[in-house]
Simulated assay, not measured.
Amino acid sequence: MTAPERTPQEPTPDIVYRPRGRVPGTVAGAHRGRDAGGLGTFRDQVPFLRMPDARRIDVRATLRDPFEGTYVRRFESRTALEVWALVDLSASMRFSGEADRMGLVSSFCGCLAASATRIGDAFGLIGCDAALREDVFLPASRRRSMAGDVVSRLTDAACTGDRADGMGQAARRLVGRPKIVFLVSDFRWPEALIAETFASLSRHDLVPVVLADSAEDDDLPEWGLMELDDLEGAGRRVVFMRPGLRRRWIAREAERAETLRRIASTYGRPPFRLAGRFDPDAVSRHLLAS
């Protein structure tokens, strides 16, 4: 079922996300913090000696203690975090079938940047092909104009590389406290590169976003001539599609998707499939359920 069309005047909904577990850090924000203290959401009561703050003494809990101990209320801090989009810019991302692949990426990352900065989180962007792309790098920022900058960088980005090896280097840019990292790609990489990239980002809350298109599998004909174009440099070839080849093709795609799901589940969240059109509500449902 496709999402209803939105009128031009209707604002795009935010992408709603939440980190796995409590977030370290001291910058006030929207997420459950790892630290506890005298301000925030009520968490529990602890003995006075564990948190000697006379302003937070809980009189009722103190009077109920048969051993005459003194208790204070402890509160859970609300903390901001960093959200990053790590985008594959290899040549296969130029594919255009049911939808323009980089158009979907721009819409997704722009909405994610707007959603993050609106609640006080910082958003950053890293682009990669065979190496890190400095022309598609934006350091994490809470600027409300960040979404426009992200869309501009991705719209102007050239996808010409024949490899995505730069993904393995991206973790060096993501040092420090754990972050939410959205890894955006069609994942048409060697299995070893997928595993290496996911392992290098495993300390973060990793969300794979898979760019897909029905023209790559669902819309294949039973019979007919097809001209295939390898966007990463292997040239064009004509293929005579027939039922047996179609079955093998679909089985190979299913095997590739299962390999990605298995690796992703080892190091992060299950993949989200972005195909056809960008639906922020579908992304939010996936993130809140995973």
Rank of each mutant, 00 (worst) to 15 (best):
V209P: 08
G166P: 01
A212S: 15
D162M: 07
V238Q: 14
Q45N: 15
L288R: 11
P24V: 13
C111K: 08
D156S: 14
G33E: 00
T26P: 13
T160F: 07
P19E: 05
A251M: 09
L225F: 08
D218T: 13
I119L: 05
L138G: 04
G244V: 10
D162V: 09
G21L: 08
M241W: 02
P47A: 05
S265E: 06
V16S: 11
V181N: 04
A254V: 01
G127R: 02
G244H: 14
A122I: 03
L138V: 10
R133V: 05
V59L: 14
D165T: 09
G148A: 14
A130I: 03
A234C: 07
R64N: 07
F137H: 10
I119T: 09
H204I: 02
G97V: 05
T79M: 08
A54F: 08
S90W: 02
R285W: 01
P271L: 03
P208E: 02
R247Q: 13
S145A: 15
L63Q: 14
I263P: 01
L220N: 00
A257R: 13
T197M: 09
G168N: 04
I194E: 12
T266A: 13
P221E: 01
L39W: 12
R118W: 04
D135H: 04
P178S: 12
D121Q: 09
F278E: 09
R256P: 07
D218L: 14
V150M: 05
A61Q: 12
D121S: 13
D162R: 12
L274G: 02
C111N: 15
